[in-house]
Amino acid sequence: MQTKQTVSIIGSTGNMGSAIARSLAKGNYRLLLLSGPNNTADSLADEIKSLNPGAEVESIDCCYNASWEADIIILAIPFGEEFAMAEKIREVANQKIVISIANPLNGTYDGLSTSPDTSAAEQLQKLLPNSKVVKAFNTSFSTNFNQPVLAGKQTDAFIAGDDEEALNLVSDLVETTGFNPLIAGPLSMSRTLEGMQLLLVQLNIKNEYNWQAGWKILHN
């Protein structure tokens, strides 16, 4: 696609948001960067522009306006903040792609706070019934965006959603960040994807991978 898509990253100042912003700036996207209420994304926008002089990147305060301008909205905020955020952007996110990257880990990192018959992504879809929620990026650590190749292999990044066109657009977006996009299935597959990251977090802690670990489907 030649037409630049506008991507709003809500929570761009965080670990994941900033990693996603830095890598998307290399692609054909126009980025609108948002922070929480007591911060700004100005310095991140400046940093990205100095590293990628051609990049169209802007720090913006209002999540409503940013979502109104956006073609694709990435929610890179903690899971618990998504309910209030969905209320704020629902009207302007109508029919748009909203990417859920959240892993609803509990406070002790040994379980998920969602019940087994749902997922963070499906809950977001319920809050934004006319948006196209797509699960992506949740199975990668923010520390992997610098180096999506682990042990000589390009890490997989799983994607789930119910709208085929949205899945393809998000697949392109994931590819831009250097991961290997792999469409896993419908949005309900997010239950598995969120569980996979719980497992990876636990293995990381137990085996001291130092957050340098990821998923790869091996096949012939």
Binding site: W68, E69, V92, N94, Q95
Partner: peptide, 9 residues
């Protein structure tokens, strides 16, 4: 309304 995409340019 539920099928419309609002957009600013």
């Amino acid at each position: 309304k539920s099928y419309l995409t609002p957009k600013k340019l």
